[in-house]
């Protein structure tokens, strides 16, 4: 009995070693070569989807380097998967991902229209049924900005206010890059963002997050977001860093309306093991879009 068991165990070990060696031949080599990237870039150049996203997140740096469509801000740092009708997803042997599910923020997955193999890549095209369109995006067409001390002046890629600076920039919230209005103003200063006669659809959809998750040993002071439409307060949200990329939605009547948002960062700085660090690198990252029904 022992002899047979020992012989079988030895054979089993040899088999396991051989399997690992066999698998090694596939895993320890490049699966993508330069030509594959060129082919993918050419393939996506003609893609007319509203958004292109990467399902295989870890490929990001090389994908952005090789494929301009994947380096676009909307692809690399989009706010979510709302306000688009068609979506192209690129992956290494995968046509969807958990990260994309999170970007749906509770909505149903879009219907898959087609799947193509482009070299080692899978390029899948999706269509959202009854998806609202993006009518207005404050990161594309920014509002006017002011603080209690007056209007903020446009300066380079941002604005200079008396109490600090605002810019349209990339920011990291909960380890994900986002493109948004980033603000760094003194404590308790409301930043008012206003668009007169803004085209609204059925909802205003926005996000707010607090940057610098790298230094995250903290529970930072909250940020308050108040939204007015035609001078009527329609929503107040209080967001903390622990909520990550916090979504807020306000139902709206289609048409032209005055939209005003006040963002108040109550106390800047970051809490760590040693207490409050007032020079903490955190910023507030905010984006807002008007979404409407598909025509």
């Amino acid at each position: 009995m022992k002899t047979r068991w020992a012989r079988r165990t030895l054979a089993g070990l040899a088999a396991l070693g051989a399997i690992e060696l066999f698998v090694s031949a596939f895993v320890y080599r490049d699966a993508i070569d330069d030509a594959d990237w060129d082919t993918l870039a050419a393939h996506l150049e003609a893609d007319d989807a509203d958004a292109i996203r990467l399902a295989t997140g870890w490929l990001g740096p090389r994908a952005r380097m090789e494929v301009p469509a994947l380096a676009a801000p909307s692809s690399a740092a989009g706010p979510d998967l709302h306000g688009i009708e068609t979506l192209t997803v690129v992956g290494l042997g995968e046509a969807w991902s958990d990260a994309l599910d999170r970007e749906l923020e509770g909505s149903l997955r879009p219907g898959r229209v087609s799947v193509d193999d482009v070299g080692p890549f899978t390029v899948a095209r999706y269509r959202f049924e009854h998806a609202p369109r993006t009518l207005h995006d404050w990161t594309e067409r920014p509002p006017s900005l002011r603080t209690p001390q007056g209007s903020c002046r446009g300066k380079g890629r941002g604005w200079a206010c008396k109490e600090g600076n605002v810019s349209v920039a990339f920011a990291e919230v909960d380890y994900v890059p986002r493109r948004c209005l980033t603000t760094a103003l003194s404590d308790n200063t409301p930043l008012t963002l206003e668009s007169k006669n803004m085209e609204l659809g059925t909802s205003l959809r926005g996000h707010l997050g607090i940057t610098d998750f790298n230094g995250r040993l903290r529970s930072d002071a909250p940020v308050r977001v108040q939204t007015w439409i035609d001078d009527v307060l329609v929503g107040t949200f209080t967001v903390t860093d622990a909520q990550g990329w916090r979504t807020f939605v306000v139902r709206t009547e289609p048409g032209l309306h005055d939209v005003r948002v006040a963002i108040t960062d109550t106390v800047r700085g970051t809490w760590g093991r040693a207490g409050l660090d007032p020079r903490g690198a955190r910023k507030v990252c905010f984006e807002l879009r008007a979404l409407g029904e598909a025509p």
Binding site: D30, P61, R62, R64, A71
Partner: peptide, 13 residues
């Protein structure tokens, strides 16, 4: 958002 050079190990940046 596009780097100029990426060092990879078996495709992993």
């Amino acid at each position: 958002t596009a780097p100029q050079v990426v060092l990879e190990l078996d495709d992993v940046p």
